[in-house]
Simulated scan of single mutants.
Amino acid sequence: MAQPIFIPLEMVANGKPPYPPVLALGFRPFYLLAAAWLVFAMPMWLLIYGHGLISESHLLGPIWHAHEMLWGFTSAVIVGFLFTAVSNWTNRPTPRGWPLLFIASLWLAARILLLTPWSEIGALVETLFFVAAAIGIAQPLFRSGNRRNYFFVGLLLIFALLSAAHHYSLLTDVVWFTARQIEFLMLTVVLLIITVITGRIMPMFTANAIQGAPVHKRSWLDRSAVVATLAMGLSLIFLPETISKWIAVAAALIHLFRWWGWAPHWTLRKPIVWILHGSYLWMPIGFLLYAIPGSWSPMASLLATHALTVGLIAGLCIGMMTRTARGHTGRPLQASKAEVTAYILTMAAAMIRVLLPMIWPEWYRLLTSLSGLLLTIAFAIYLVKFFPWLMQPRADRKPG
């Protein structure tokens, strides 16, 4: 039988792993890379947006911004989370040590190359990254027979396929789907992952943190939310507006009902929990904004997308990145003032980016820049706070 290619933490000399602490588990390098990349890429986008800065990549302007927020920042957080979670689910090692360094290096190389004249090579490297990440979770899942989570392997391979398709649509004259349609397909897959994961963790986190909270987990509602999310995403691409708008309304109501069942109003004194609930609320808000006809508000669709990307995705990322990093570095699950500040800045960035332009559309450019600045500061706070912890062994001296 073939031996696993990833070294379990127990298979080390003198009880010390043969690699630095930052390579002990997937969340460590990928959370640092994700935060650092947002701190770099968001100001870069504001320079492109405000001053017309142009790179020599085939990804230009808003297309580069969308690509780097979905296939760059968001994918790093998802892969870091999955490498950590799959290890817990299966009690088997995911990539760590030098294999983890190799996979993280693929991600970083793609980010750099996609800013240069060698961006076509970056497209290939990015696709290889997703394939390597899929292999990284496939081995422990398949060896342990954890069938419940096999689909995550397929979703990472879909990331690879959509990455290749996005680049192909921009590099060739052959267009099956436009770049914008592929971006929305990628966003839909990310929303599916969020829908599944939040259904597992939100009731548990809330019940564990707040004694007596009336948390309700309904399996039928979780399944309905998955179907509604997929239907909403696909309908906005393939169905007439008159149909897709009603699907978006139905999806928003399902997610809103689901969210309320998790007792969000009980979490206000627990910032490390309320950030997750506050972020999830942007899912139904975004879906409702998609339901607004373009004839009523030409900006509604764009604002809806940013409700999902800034409010939902960035909010959940900052929440899970702090919680996971605290828990897996042996520290209490209690947000500090720095983390609470990052949470507030992220939610403020979403409100400024999504809600205020509906009131003052003439200030749209200024509000967009202010939102991007606040989001950059939020993740810079994370980087400063957690960089030392993620580079050092666990505080309780346990492996991981």
Rank of each mutant, 00 (worst) to 15 (best):
A307W: 02
W296Y: 14
P332G: 09
T305G: 14
S295L: 07
M299P: 05
G311P: 01
K270D: 10
R353K: 15
A342W: 01
M320W: 06
S336T: 15
I344T: 10
A348I: 02
L268Q: 14
A307G: 09
A291P: 12
G294M: 02
G315A: 11
K270T: 12
I285V: 15
R353N: 13
M351R: 01
L288F: 14
T322K: 01
G261M: 10
A307P: 08
L288E: 08
I344W: 12
L289F: 15
G286W: 00
L281R: 01
Q334S: 13
L303C: 07
I344K: 09
Q334R: 14
M320F: 13
I272P: 02
W262T: 06
P293V: 03
T324R: 03
P271A: 04
P264I: 01
R353E: 13
T329E: 05
M283Y: 09
P271I: 00
T341E: 04
L268H: 10
C317G: 03
I344R: 15
F287P: 07
V310S: 04
L308G: 04
H277P: 03
W274T: 11
S295F: 12
S279I: 03
I272M: 11
P298E: 12
A307L: 07
V340A: 12
L316F: 06
I344F: 08
L302Y: 13
M321G: 08
A263P: 06
I272F: 06
T346V: 08
W274G: 05
T322P: 01
G311S: 10
L316I: 14
T346I: 10
T341H: 06
R353Y: 09
A348M: 07
H306L: 08
S301F: 12
A291W: 11
L288T: 09
R269K: 15
